[in-house]
Simulated assay, not measured.
Amino acid sequence: MRVQAVVVTYNRLAMLQRLVPRLQEIAGLERILVVDNASTDGTGEWLAAVADPRVRHETLATNTGGAGGFHHGLGWAVREGADLVWLMDDDGLPAPDCLDLLLQRQQRDGLEFCGPAVLAEQDPARLCFPIRLPGGTRVVHEMAAVEAAAQDGLIDDVVIPFNGVLVTRGLVERIGLPREEFFIWGDDVEYLWRAQRAGARIATVVDAHFLHPATDDLGTPMMRGRTTYNHTPSDLKHYCMARNNTLNLRDYRGWPFVLLFWLKTVWFYLFTRPQPARIPLSARAAAAGLRGDFAGHRRYLR
């Protein structure tokens, strides 16, 4: 099996400089393909100086966001002949045995889209991103809860996409590449839901670990803890989230779920974290996405 890593980076040279050496230490990686989203912090120059023929990089003409980066990188790996592609952002850090554990379960169980437990770097006992356990509405934040819920070491039908996930060439050929026009936020969920719709075998391998900095206020409790909302202080991230989440829910869950998301958005920014200006911003973003306009986020780029 030809296994290649794809790393998407943008202006985080210090983090890339700890990730690439970790990947170089991991046996079994044929190539490490780095997609540089037009970084301006010396990333391209540093990559050009890496004296390892396995490490290759391509610098894009403009910043295409994580969505564009993974679209480009996954396509690149498939063209290079990869049978399995290991996808990650520049700020993650796989445990030394992460890939081995993923490969063991991928081959044993025929997984087409599998990933590690993504742990908060500041506190590895907690998940970086809360997950909803299959078969119910329970959302968990603690690694212990994931371990308790696992069946034969797996959480079926759950992964945190693009954070150390393995994707098979066959699945990519079946469902295509990530939606590059999404820029950031929601492209990973869309790809997961597309894979689920295609009947892919998906799972989190609980013993495989991947560290990621815990950022923003993902899963902020609202309505007295009965539900959560993916709040972020960044207008850029929020614009993309409101636009892309509206489209994902419409395409994969239906209009009632879109309405529920909008009720939560209005409630959150009127009562939970009062920021009334976020409501018209959200509406503009969703309307743009529904009419196929994916350029609006660029006004928030810095």
Score class of each variant (00 low, 15 high):
residue 101 L to F: 01
residue 79 R to S: 10
residue 179 R to W: 14
residue 69 G to Q: 02
residue 182 F to W: 10
residue 105 R to P: 03
residue 98 C to W: 00
residue 128 C to L: 02
residue 197 R to M: 07
residue 198 A to E: 12
residue 163 N to I: 04
residue 52 D to F: 06
residue 50 V to P: 02
residue 256 P to D: 11
residue 44 G to A: 14
residue 286 A to I: 03
residue 111 L to Y: 11
residue 189 V to L: 12
residue 261 F to P: 00
residue 186 G to E: 01
residue 284 R to A: 09
residue 29 L to K: 09
residue 275 Q to R: 14
residue 257 F to Q: 14
residue 25 E to C: 13
residue 20 V to C: 08
residue 179 R to V: 09
residue 123 D to A: 15
residue 202 I to D: 12
residue 293 D to Q: 08
residue 112 E to K: 05
residue 245 N to I: 06
residue 276 P to T: 12
residue 37 N to D: 11
residue 224 R to L: 15
residue 191 Y to I: 07
residue 162 F to W: 04
residue 51 A to K: 14
residue 206 V to R: 08
residue 44 G to Q: 12
residue 113 F to K: 07
residue 119 L to V: 11
residue 246 T to F: 04
residue 198 A to W: 14
residue 213 P to W: 10
residue 231 H to K: 10
residue 230 N to M: 01
residue 214 A to V: 01
residue 184 I to C: 04
residue 149 A to R: 01
residue 90 D to F: 01
residue 299 R to P: 08
residue 262 W to E: 04
residue 100 D to T: 10
residue 256 P to I: 13
residue 261 F to S: 02
residue 126 R to E: 10
residue 290 L to Q: 13
residue 67 A to E: 03
residue 188 D to W: 06
residue 81 G to K: 11
residue 109 D to G: 00
residue 57 H to S: 15
residue 157 D to T: 10
residue 221 P to W: 10
residue 26 I to T: 13
residue 294 F to R: 06
residue 203 A to L: 11
residue 246 T to C: 15
residue 56 R to V: 08
residue 95 A to D: 09
residue 290 L to T: 05
residue 198 A to N: 10
residue 186 G to Y: 01
residue 107 Q to D: 12
residue 174 R to P: 06
residue 208 A to P: 05
residue 235 D to L: 14
residue 252 Y to I: 11
residue 206 V to E: 05
residue 149 A to W: 04
residue 14 A to I: 05
residue 51 A to I: 07
residue 221 P to I: 10
residue 54 R to W: 13
residue 22 R to N: 01
residue 259 L to Y: 02
residue 200 A to S: 10
residue 118 V to Q: 03
residue 85 V to E: 01
residue 147 E to Y: 05
residue 26 I to K: 02
residue 101 L to I: 05
residue 120 A to W: 05
residue 257 F to N: 09
residue 11 N to V: 02
residue 52 D to Y: 06
residue 138 R to G: 07
residue 82 A to Y: 05
residue 81 G to I: 14
residue 167 V to K: 04
residue 63 N to Q: 08
residue 11 N to W: 04
residue 224 R to W: 15
residue 230 N to V: 00
residue 38 A to I: 03
residue 155 I to Q: 01
residue 190 E to C: 09
residue 201 R to I: 03
residue 153 G to T: 07
residue 178 P to C: 11
residue 39 S to H: 05
residue 140 V to F: 02
residue 299 R to T: 14
residue 65 G to A: 05
residue 97 D to E: 14
residue 269 Y to W: 05
residue 63 N to W: 03
residue 221 P to T: 11
residue 153 G to A: 11
residue 301 L to Y: 13
residue 144 A to E: 12
residue 136 G to Q: 13
residue 202 I to R: 13
residue 204 T to Y: 09
residue 168 T to K: 04
residue 145 A to R: 04
residue 160 I to F: 07
residue 99 L to I: 02
residue 47 L to I: 13
residue 198 A to R: 11
residue 154 L to K: 07
residue 18 R to G: 00
residue 124 P to L: 07
residue 137 T to I: 02
residue 209 H to T: 11
residue 122 Q to W: 07
residue 216 D to T: 05
residue 88 M to E: 02
residue 283 A to E: 08
residue 38 A to E: 03
residue 123 D to G: 04
residue 223 M to W: 07
residue 236 L to S: 09
residue 93 L to I: 08
residue 193 W to L: 15
residue 155 I to H: 00
